[in-house]
């Protein structure tokens, strides 16, 4: 599904990722964990082409996307919900959502996707003609994820979806992701600082430390590894 081999990335002279190897199985939820500055966000940004790799390769759906422009990667079925959601506050809720599907030619299916997303996130429905800037933090995150789903992606990249949310709201978002995968077989790559909640819905986990993969295993095994938890996951 997604294969990352020997991936490196730099910001000027600063090395953000070094020789990262990682694999995401189709239909799985895979968590990327690690402290601030470990390279989690950079990893997602390299996958979607916002940051160019300085070495290595990203393969998605059997196609090398390492040098592909961001908009083409999106149109190939990779939906990246950036940190904070990237909701456009000047546009209405519905405009934000519609934007996620505009590249798809099937008009009728775009309308269906809109209905499905509004059903998936009921708080958005009554606010669809309001400016997205008026939403609460939790609603914004729902909008951002919903917008990603509008394109009917094969893979969803999520950057810290629970950041800054009340624990209850964060748990709700995690539950939605778990149900989505169960219902539709969507592949999810989930970046989180909140390791415990991310691992609770994940199949696999990769732990990054200073731009390198320091551990990778089944989610359950990672959760049970006390030493790792203390050293990298902070709980």
């Amino acid at each position: 599904m997604l294969e990352i081999e020997g991936l490196s990335a730099h910001y000027g002279p600063v090395r953000a990722l070094s020789e990262v190897n990682l694999k995401v199985e189709e239909g799985s939820i895979t968590a990327i964990l690690g402290a601030n500055g470990a390279g989690k966000t950079t990893l997602l940004r390299v996958i979607s082409g916002l940051v160019r790799a300085s070495g290595g390769r990203v393969t998605a759906f059997g196609e090398d996307i390492t040098a592909m422009p961001t908009d083409r990667i999106a149109r190939s079925g990779v939906a990246h919900v950036p940190e904070g959601g990237g909701v456009i506050p000047e546009l209405t809720v519905e405009e934000n959502l519609r934007l996620g599907a505009l590249w798809r030619p099937d008009r009728a299916d775009r309308a269906r996707a809109l209905d499905e997303v509004l059903e998936l996130f009921p708080p958005l429905a009554p606010r669809r003609s309001k400016a997205a800037g008026t939403l609460s933090g939790g609603e914004r995150q729902m909008l951002a994820i919903g917008r990603g789903l509008m394109g009917r992606p094969r893979m969803l990249l999520l950057d810290e979806p629970s950041l800054g949310l009340a624990p209850l709201v964060a748990a709700k978002i995690m539950a939605v992701l778990r149900d989505l995968r169960a219902d539709t077989g969507l592949t999810v790559l989930l970046v989180e600082q909140n390791a415990r909640s991310a691992l609770s819905i994940s199949d696999y986990g990769f732990v990054l430390g200073l731009g390198e993969v320091v551990a990778s295993d089944d989610a359950a095994t990672l959760l049970a590894d006390d030493q790792l938890r203390h050293a990298y996951l902070g709980f």
């Binding site: 979607s48 916002l50 422009p69 961001t70 908009d71 999106a74 149109r75 939906a79 990246h80 950036p82 990237g86 456009i88 000047e90 546009l91 405009e95 519609r98 934007l99 996620g100 505009l102 590249w103 917008r147 394109g151």
Partner: peptide, 24 residues
């Protein structure tokens, strides 16, 4: 129009527009 929506998105937040498949 959907073209207008894409143009506004590209203006307000080019990076997010790209992530949504817009040819900015």
């Amino acid at each position: 129009t959907s073209l207008g929506l894409r143009m506004r998105a590209a203006a307000f937040n080019p990076e997010v527009a790209r992530l949504l498949g817009v040819r900015v």
